[in-house]
């Protein structure tokens, strides 16, 4: 599948943003957010910046972005529409949470509840994003039991790594956050490796025989209907990243998982300025790695229409 830059950026950015928002909201509901204006406000600011930036970029791949508002209408059947609705609804408790924090600076009462609501909305939005892909039957790599947990784990993981970095910058560095972020990063790594192992053994969900109704024997393409690349080949027959798959997988694993996990694990042992730097580098490194991972998520995925072209 063709990896549109806007969609890669959108899913990575909103995943991290919603992960961060969900963790802040959950911590407020549990009453464990550090008191004081700036650490939490900066975390919320970063979360909203990532979410808003991602949502804006997602309109970049639309043919008619001026009609994007129509996408809120079909929530009864469409995961894409549900994602849009959830994304907008999450801004309501999210904004209340932020305003409440500015006023009270304490995770208590209605502020804590608003935080809980924002966390719920964030999880629901990432759930919908994952289901957009997980519900597409023609793409076996997406229509898989690994897709939904993957999106949720990566959102929580990148959100926690960002939370750790933000709190460290504002003097609230906590060993437990750093260690938890390292553990979640390792969990994400394990999940991605399991996903790739599963995907590599996958076949297309149909065969050239069933695609053409020609039973038995072997069906091969001897002539395409057109001499140049058409929309289907450009969109569904994308092959560039597949060529470099193994190398890109190594890069993604190093940047998204190995390096951040190592930095986060040793950060509590370092003096404060170095620990802060380690937290920041881990977060930036992981986002870069997740962008590569997301690129592969699209570029590695194979669509059944290529059965007609013999390009699988």
């Amino acid at each position: 599948m063709h990896p549109a830059y806007s969609v890669i950026f959108f899913t990575t950015s909103t995943g991290a943003g919603y992960g961060l928002l969900a963790l802040l909201g959950l911590m407020s509901l549990l009453g464990v957010l550090p008191a004081g204006l700036w650490p939490v406000l900066a975390g919320l600011g970063l979360a909203f910046a990532l979410i808003a930036g991602g949502l804006l970029s997602s309109t970049g791949h639309l043919g008619r972005p001026e009609r994007a508002w129509r996408a809120f209408s079909q929530w009864r059947s469409s995961w894409l529409s549900r994602e849009g609705v959830c994304a907008v609804l999450t801004f309501v408790p999210g904004t209340l949470f932020g305003l409440g924090w500015i006023v009270t600076q304490r995770p208590e009462g209605w502020v804590a509840v608003a935080g809980g609501g924002a966390a719920l909305g964030a999880v629901a939005t990432v759930y919908c994003t994952a289901m957009i892909y997980a519900s597409l039957k023609p793409v076996a790599q997406w229509h898989s039991r690994f897709t939904l947990p993957g999106y949720l784990i990566f959102a929580a993981m990148s959100g926690l790594v960002l939370l750790n970095a933000v709190f460290a910058v504002f003097g609230q560095a906590a060993s437990i956050l750093s260690i938890a972020a390292a553990v979640l990063t390792l969990a994400g790594w394990a999940w991605k490796r399991a996903t790739w192992q599963h995907d590599d053994a996958l076949n297309l969900p149909a065969t050239a025989n069933s695609a053409t109704g020609l039973a038995g024997g072997r069906v091969q393409s001897i002539e395409w209907p057109h001499s140049e690349e058409n929309y289907l080949l450009k969109e569904m027959g994308f092959r560039v990243a597949r060529k470099h798959r193994d190398r890109l997988r190594l890069i993604a694993q190093a940047l998204a998982f190995a390096v951040p996990a190592a930095l986060l694990a040793i950060a509590p042992l370092l003096p404060v300025p170095a620990a802060v730097a380690a937290g920041i580098v881990a977060a930036l490194c992981q986002i870069a790695g997740l962008l590569v991972e997301r690129w592969l998520f699209f570029a590695d995925a194979k669509h059944t229409v290529m059965l007609y072209y013999g390009r699988t």
Binding site: A206, T304, V305
Partner: peptide
């Protein structure tokens, strides 16, 4: 139509 192309992905 907003041209999101999701329908073309959904069609096998």
């Amino acid at each position: 139509c907003i041209g999101c192309k999701l329908c073309s992905w959904a069609c096998p």
